[in-house]
Structure formats: structure tokens, C-alpha cells
Design a protein around this nucleic acid. Structure first.
Lengths: 232, 232
DNA sequence: CGGACGGTTGACACTAGTCAAATTGAGTGG
DNA sequence: CCACTCAATTTGACTAGTGTCAACCGTCCG
């Protein structure tokens, strides 16, 4: 896969970068492609690189000492991830990054990016901006996890994913086809495979969604929204 | 309360600042003191200011549409909070900040800090560093909320608070006295007042803690750690 | 053709939430 | 100093919501 430095303009953090800076990044980075199921890195590895997803889809997940996994975030193309290494010496990745589809990413050394940041305020500011977004997102999900029932969280997660994917791809059809397993969805919503399965079956029965093996399509986003927002 | 600009050195983000910069900050900011129960700001207010807590204790909480509240984070003296306004134009606070003890804070205009950041990479980098910490912290709590039982979360939260407070104050006695209500603790752990009360009563009975009205003291942190870490 | 993997469904257990009622403790005004 | 008030807390009874585990099904793929 070839990557022009212009393409990087789609990355939020690089929106205000000069062409020279973008070239610098592409020349100092390299491409890495992995297949579905493989990992870019594991939780606990030294955070030597940061990534920009070019194609595919990646999930960031954290596993607890007792082995249970939680999906922290799902990365779409042109998102930067694992950026923390750039600002912390000797950091280790707090999560693992697994491809849930065949994926390709631009890989950049953390300390290279760190140096660039020292002399380019726009970069540090952009990174800060990205992080505030992440913080707000995960805070919202934290609140949801603490206060909402499984049903609502699943509905909300489906809607969120649909909009994320609909955003990155151009297909603005009302119904997006999403590919991931019940297990994945369970990890995203903080519940179990079984509860997800039951819930989706129910929803398929009443026509809200269309589900299959590692595949979900929303048929009635209105109806889902109603479930997600019900306060009782 | 008077504040020397030297005191600001204790704030992580300002650790590498020049004396001139610190003076600039103190001169451009002002002190604001509020009593227990009052708010520095509310969720949804325009994020015009950022804060550095000087004394007291503040909780950041988010409330959902249906009115339930979650404690996102508890601020100790010399922590900066509500910094997001500095990097986002027209942002609103994603959480409310309520004093759980009489508190004082240095208040700085967001756009003033924003301007400073443009020309001082160390500031933007420091802020980024702070944010990575916040992200990791809340991610860890998110995982805990998703995978651990209430009992474990309460134990872990107590230990975390004890170390936070023991850190900021000098009292490195093994048992720190902590002041907050069962309700507060429930909001921090994503559970209910009743469950917290029951759990603490149990623990008091077997000698792990010493609890009273809006007051908890850990007697056996070993024992609590054991509860927090039990994988089953 | 035969696994293997993802998914479905049922039976059951149990954690933790809900609600009502009683109790305690701190602070206040007389 | 005492009675009074009110908020914080405790406790019990009940149960909804989810997790757990086992058995089974369907389909994709070597």
C-alpha cells in the first residue's frame, strides 16, 4: 500500500500541519499491515511507536489481571492511536490493539514525534485536542456503564458504531452493515456474549435490526434510539 | 488566601515553567473560594475558565439525562482541572465540579492559557501528559466497572483515595481518615448508597475499616487489597 | 465429511438494585 | 444543657436484571 503524505491531512492531529512536516512524518514512519485477529501491539509492551490507521478496523482492549477483557475503543481509518508514548518516557501500552479486519497502519517512532512536538506547538495542541475528545468519550461511556442497563448500552453502542463507520466511509445509506462478533459487542458494552445474543435475537424478532454471523445491520435506528434513551 | 507564584510549581503541568510564566499565570488568574456543597461550575456551562485546586477537595461528576450521577474524578490540592476549555473553542464543561469540603482554587481564563500554549511547547506537552494520565486512570476504572464486582470496586476505590490523600498531605500514617458520605462513595464506584452501606458495615464488623458519619478510616489495607484483587 | 467456531436458547443462581422503615448523630435555637 | 430537627446511615424484605453453564444448532471451510 502506498501512502502519499497528503493523505495524512485527513488525520485530525495533522490538519494544520505544513506539507514539509507531513513528508517528514511519512518518511520517518513505515507501513505495517496485519491480518484480522493479529495484534499491532500488546498491553504492557514498551510504547515505542504510535500509529495512524490507514485501512481496516482495530480494537483497543484492556485485560484485567483475572483475564477478562474490555474494549476501550474501536479505531477507524485515519485515526491516530497509541499516542501516549510520544509524551511519556518509558511508557508501556495500557491496552492491546487487535485488528478486527485486515488492517494497515502508518507506524511512527514515539520519540521522533516527541521531538517534533517540542518545536511545533500546533502538534502538541492538536494532540491535546484529540485527547480531550477521547476523555470525553470514555467518560460518557463510563457514565453509561454505571447508570444504564445492558439493553440501552447495546443500543447506544450500535448507533455509535454505525455513525462512526458511516462517517469514515462515504456510504451514507441509512443502514450500515457492521462486522463484528457478539463477543466483540459484549466487550464493548461491558456485558456477556449471552446477554448480547439474547438481546439481538429479540430485536431481530421485532424488526429493529438484521443480524447474522459476525454481521449486524440496523433497520430501524429510530427504534434503537428510543431504547437507548428510555429513562426508565 | 494568598498565593505565591512559587506554589504553582507543585502543579504538574507547571513543573517546567519559568518563574516569569508562573507570575503571568497568577497575575492573570484570581482566587475563588466556595463552601462544601457549592459548585465551581456546572455541566453544560461554557468552559471559560480552568482551575487549579489550592485547598479542599472537589468532585467532578457527570449526570445523565435521567438524572443519575457518576463521580468521574476527585480532585486533590494542586491538581489542575477543567483544562479542556484551553484547547477547544466554544467547549462546555462535560461535568460539574462540586466541593466536598470548603475549597479554594486559582481560576484562569481558558483563552489566556490557550494563548500561552501557542508559544510555549512545554505547556502543551505538559497538558498532554496530564491528559494521558487521566485517560489511563479512567480507562482502568472503566475496565473495573465492566469486569469487577461492587465489593472489589469499593475496596479498590478506598485504597486509591487513601493513597491520593496520603500523597498530597504529608501524613504518611498507615491509616488515613477520609471524609465523604456513603452517597459519594456510591457515585465513585457506580453503585448505590445502600450497597455501600451494607458493604462497609460488613467490613467494619470484621475489622477492616473504621467507619462513621461521613468518615472512613482504613484499619487493614492488606485485607482490603486482598478483597480488591480476588479474581473470583 | 467433519471439525471448529459463532451463535442460540433454556434453566438456574445470585448480585445488587429498589423501597420502606427504623436508627443514629450532628447541629441549632431556646 | 436539652429538646428538636434533619440529614446520613442502617437494615430488612423483595425482586429485577444479568451472569453462568450446559446443550444444541448452523454454517463455513479445509
Amino acid at each position: 500500500m502506498t501512502l502519499s503524505h497528503h493523505d495524512l491531512r485527513q488525520v485530525n492531529v495533522f490538519a494544520e500541519a505544513t506539507d514539509d512536516d507531513l513528508q517528514l512524518v511519512t518518511r520517518n514512519g513505515f507501513m505495517r499491515s496485519i491480518e484480522e485477529g493479529e495484534y499491532f501491539f500488546f498491553q504492557g509492551d514498551p510504547a515505542e511507536y504510535l500509529y495512524v490507521l490507514i485501512s481496516g478496523q482495530v480494537k483497543l482492549m484492556q485485560s484485567s489481571p483475572n483475564g477478562k477483557q474490555v474494549n476501550i475503543r474501536t479505531i477507524q481509518p485515519w485515526e491516530m492511536f497509541a499516542a501516549l508514548g510520544a509524551v511519556r518516557k518509558d511508557a508501556t501500552y495500557p491496552a492491546s490493539a487487535q485488528a478486527i479486519q485486515d488492517s494497515a497502519a502508518l507506524v511512527v517512532r514515539s520519540d521522533f514525534m516527541s521531538e517534533m512536538m517540542q518545536t511545533r506547538p500546533y502538534l502538541a495542541v492538536g494532540l491535546t485536542r484529540l485527547m480531550t475528545t477521547l476523555i470525553q468519550e470514555i467518560q460518557a461511556r463510563y457514565r453509561e456503564l454505571a447508570t444504564e442497563r445492558v439493553e440501552q448500552r447495546i443500543a447506544r453502542t450500535l448507533l455509535r458504531l454505525a455513525s462512526q463507520i458511516g462517517q469514515s466511509s462515504e456510504s451514507q445509506t441509512t443502514s450500515v452493515e457492521m462486522e463484528f462478533s457478539r463477543q466483540d459487542l459484549a466487550e464493548m458494552t461491558g456485558t456477556t456474549l449471552f446477554t448480547v445474543s439474547r438481546t439481538l435475537s429479540e430485536w431481530e424478532k421485532i424488526g429493529l435490526i438484521d443480524a447474522g454471523r459476525e454481521r449486524i445491520r440496523i433497520k430501524d435506528s429510530q427504534g434503537l434510539t428510543k431504547i437507548a434513551d428510555q429513562s426508565e
